[in-house]
Amino acid sequence: MREEGGELTVRDPVSAPDAEGRPRRVTRRFPLFTKDTARPEGGGRAASGDAFAPARQWPVLAVLGLVGLGLVVTAFGQFRLGTLLIGIALLGGGAMRWLLPDVGMLAVRSRFTDIVTYGVMGLAIVLLAMMAQPNPWLQIPFLKDTLHFTVTSE
């Protein structure tokens, strides 16, 4: 293991050796038994290191704050509005992950995986909130037929 240009590189042990007997192929992957893991792409601080701690992690705090607000609104009897806030918070997290170069602790996995995860979960929660009974804001006709065929025993 050595550093080249600020990046950690590891010689891949399965490649053919060079004249000195070292493997030729270089990869960014960590060896099998690693003591540490690489930070996700975009996982750097969202603000400079000398900034106040919450300012460095403002993206994740914004998402968690909106989710918390949605949970409080839901607890006070506004189910649809609260769940919409939760879904919008996740969609906003996906948008921040896509648009911002560094999002701090909002970066959990690779950029693509985070965007897809936040987007799918946020969209599912928003759609379910819009279809909640009574008086749904969104009606999808084939879902009623699907439910009818799965519940009835005829």
Rank of each mutant, 00 (worst) to 15 (best):
I86L: 06
F79K: 04
V116G: 12
F112N: 14
G70K: 01
Q78P: 01
G104I: 08
Y118V: 04
W98T: 07
D114M: 12
L69N: 03
M105C: 02
L84K: 00
T113G: 08
L91S: 03
L90F: 14
L91R: 01
R111K: 15
A95T: 15
L84V: 06
G119P: 08
A89F: 00
R111T: 15
M105S: 12
R109E: 14
G93T: 06
G68M: 09
A107S: 13
P101L: 14
A107G: 07
T117S: 15
T74F: 11
A95N: 09
I88Q: 04
L99D: 01
S110C: 13
L106I: 09
G94C: 03
A89C: 08
D102Q: 13
L81W: 09
Y118G: 02
D114E: 14
L91M: 09
G70H: 01
P101T: 12
A75P: 04
I88T: 12
A89H: 03
L66T: 10
T74I: 02
A107I: 06
L90Y: 10
G65W: 03
L69Q: 05
A107E: 07
T74H: 11
L91Q: 02
F112L: 15
R97A: 08
P101M: 13
D114S: 12
R80P: 01
L90A: 10
L91N: 02
I88H: 00
V108C: 05
R80S: 06
G77E: 08
R80A: 07
L99I: 05
Y118K: 09
I88D: 06
G77D: 05
G93K: 04
T117I: 12
R97G: 02
L69I: 14
A75R: 10
V67G: 03
G65I: 08
V108G: 03
V72W: 13
I86Q: 06
L90W: 07
V72N: 04
V108D: 03
Q78C: 00
T83N: 13
A95E: 09
L84Y: 00
F112E: 15
L106Q: 04
F112K: 15
L71I: 05
L66M: 15
G82L: 05
G82W: 02
G92S: 15
G70M: 02
A95R: 07
G87H: 02
V116H: 10
V73D: 01
T113H: 10
G70V: 00
F112Q: 14
F79R: 09
I88Y: 04
T83D: 01
Y118Q: 05
I115G: 10
Q78K: 12
L100D: 04
L91F: 02
D102G: 06
V73F: 01
T113L: 14
